[in-house]
Design a binder for these strands. Structure first.
Lengths: 138, 138
DNA sequence: TTTGAAAATAGACAACT
DNA sequence: AGTTGTCTATTTTCAAA
């Protein structure tokens, strides 16, 4: 199970996942080896799914981000779920409860690209789009 | 500017941000030093905002995830944006266009916790909640 | 969980192209 | 400019306690 030490490690890694085991150990008064053991176990158990980075997409030419709610046409859900992989613009996809059944986060260069994406998605179901104005930083 | 080599690095780091500069270099045929230079510049420019981890919340006792659209009461927006920080359940918050103006992702232990959170959020505005059933993996 | 020791890497700097 | 080699300090890794 995940104890309070593990939770501390997870919290720290959430803020900076590139810290060395030595640094992590210093922060929570544990030897590097012990930290390594714990982190490795968290990986094996699947608690840590992935080490990744947060990118400022605007700085690399992707100026538009949006959430799209998709109400998939009856009987097409499985098909659409598979199709999701083929869209590089879709960065995260979730199945959700409610009137719509799929929630997407998309990142595109500009409005034209979003329009083209929506044209395609409209073949799968009804779309409801919310442009992202900014992230509220915590 | 960000060239194609940088984009490759970003793509790789998005999948595994704990790789060493040496490993990154092996993947794209570049020396560790060069990789280090590039990654450091990407950090300085703000392209890489953060190194973080993706956690399987269900495995640590947080069984419920949801998206919440919030239509904040008139004149209360700034107040609410500041309040967001006080909710540990809120993992990401965005300002969005449309009928609602804030999009939240929340992680809670169970339905009761969600209910309590919604009770509080309802003081700020009208809520629209979508439970997350699963993530569609890419 | 800790210690210890070998292998690998990080970080800094000078030099090269 | 971007890239590379070299150097040392630090870290990772793994065995053993």
């Amino acid at each position: 199970m995940v104890d309070s030490t593990d939770k501390k490690l997870l919290d720290i890694l959430k803020e900076n996942s590139r810290l060395s085991f030595a640094d992590l150990g210093r922060k929570i008064n544990l030897s590097p080896s012990s930290v390594r053991e714990r982190v490795q176990k968290l990986e094996e158990e699947g608690v840590i799914k992935k080490y990744d980075i947060q990118i400022n997409n605007k700085l690399i030419g992707y100026d538009l981000e949006a959430f799209i709610l998709l109400k998939v046409f009856p009987g097409k859900l499985k098909y659409v779920i598979n199709k999701v992989n083929e869209f590089p613009e879709i960065t995260v996809a979730h199945r959700i409860t409610g009137n719509q059944n799929i929630h997407l986060k998309v990142v595109v260069e500009n409005q034209l690209r979003l329009q083209k994406l929506l044209d395609k998605l409209m073949q799968f179901g009804d779309t409801n789009t919310f442009l992202i104005l900014s992230e509220i930083t915590k």
